[in-house]
């Protein structure tokens, strides 16, 4: 659970998306879903993507999570460029580095809770003893120990999403992609889910990019990015220029985590963030401050 500092440093910029463009064919026309969006997220950081329906949140998440390809722009995961990799290589990369949390939970209905959580480790070819240990550990951490033998059908929505969180994080990925993870939950449960996701990803040093409509959810994130019509916009809805995006990036890959975030005058979103490291536990966390 205690990710070493060195590992965190290596993961400093877990995901770096630059000037991504994506359009879809709609009849004889093209719909531009992303018009040049850049985004970075650091280890342990939780970034919220908000914006109206159809603004391109899911499109951006799919690109970040390596399950779709862009028309233009570049992507890096854990310091490695991923564009040009074939499907098998991308799949391996997802297997090792990316966890997914879906709006509809997407658990495998014939597998019980423990088996669902174990699945990513099975894919990674981990030894049975290691699998058992890691599954037990994360079930404990997500409060699911007592439900290990249950099938997903016999769980509440909140419990299912906790299983999904456990499944996403059991392999300690660099990146977790969550598309509207709380949309199917009541607000109280949504709160708990966000807190759990945040804590676990901080502990395990995973960057989280989460798309949400939910203001209460984004308030719990380290940083909020707004998308409108395929572009990043500031709090007032004005498109942010390339300069600001670069600045926002430099904030995140700052070599010293204790350096305060610059550019407070015109932040990319409504939050700026600093990465702090708890020297006692060796874990790092990212704190957001409302401007």
């Amino acid at each position: 659970m205690n990710a070493p500092t060195l590992e965190l440093a290596a993961r400093a910029s877990t995901v770096r998306l630059t000037d991504l463009r994506k359009r879809y064919r709609v009849g004889d026309d093209w719909a531009e879903a992303l018009k040049g969006v850049s985004l970075t997220a650091a280890a342990g950081e939780m970034v919220a993507l908000t914006g109206p329906s159809g603004s391109g949140k899911s499109t951006l998440l799919n690109l970040a999570g390596l399950i779709d390809t862009q028309d233009a722009g570049t992507r890096e995961i854990a310091g490695r460029p991923v564009d040009g990799l074939d499907d098998a290589a991308l799949t391996s990369l997802r297997r090792e580095q990316v966890g997914f949390i879906f709006q509809g939970f997407n658990l495998v209905p014939v597998m019980n809770v423990a088996d669902n959580v174990e699945y990513p480790l099975l894919l990674l070819g981990r030894a049975p003893a290691e699998r058992r240990r890691k599954v037990a550990e994360i079930l404990e951490r997500t409060g699911l120990t007592g439900l290990a033998g249950r099938l997903p059908d016999a769980l509440s929505g909140g419990q299912r999403q906790r299983v999904a969180i456990a499944r996403a994080l059991v392999k300690s990925p660099s990146l977790v992609i969550a598309d509207e993870p709380t949309a199917n939950l009541d607000s109280h449960t949504a709160q708990q889910i966000v807190d759990l996701l945040r804590e676990l990803s901080h502990e395990r040093g995973a960057a989280v990019v989460v798309a949400t409509h939910d203001e209460r959810m984004s308030a719990h994130c380290d940083r909020v990015l707004r998308l409108a019509d395929g572009e990043l916009v500031d709090a007032h809805g004005a498109p942010t220029g390339p300069a600001e995006e670069k600045q926002a990036k430099s904030e995140l890959i700052a070599p010293h985590p204790l350096t305060p975030a610059p550019g407070r005058g015109r932040p990319t979103g409504s939050l700026s963030s600093t990465v702090t490291r708890d020297s006692a536990t060796g874990t790092s966390s990212v704190k957001g401050e409302r401007q």
Binding site: T91, R94, E96, G99, F100, V108, P120, L124, R167
Partner: peptide, 9 residues
């Protein structure tokens, strides 16, 4: 879902 979380075709 299985493909997304790293299952090869």
């Amino acid at each position: 879902t299985l493909r997304a979380i790293g299952t090869q075709p």
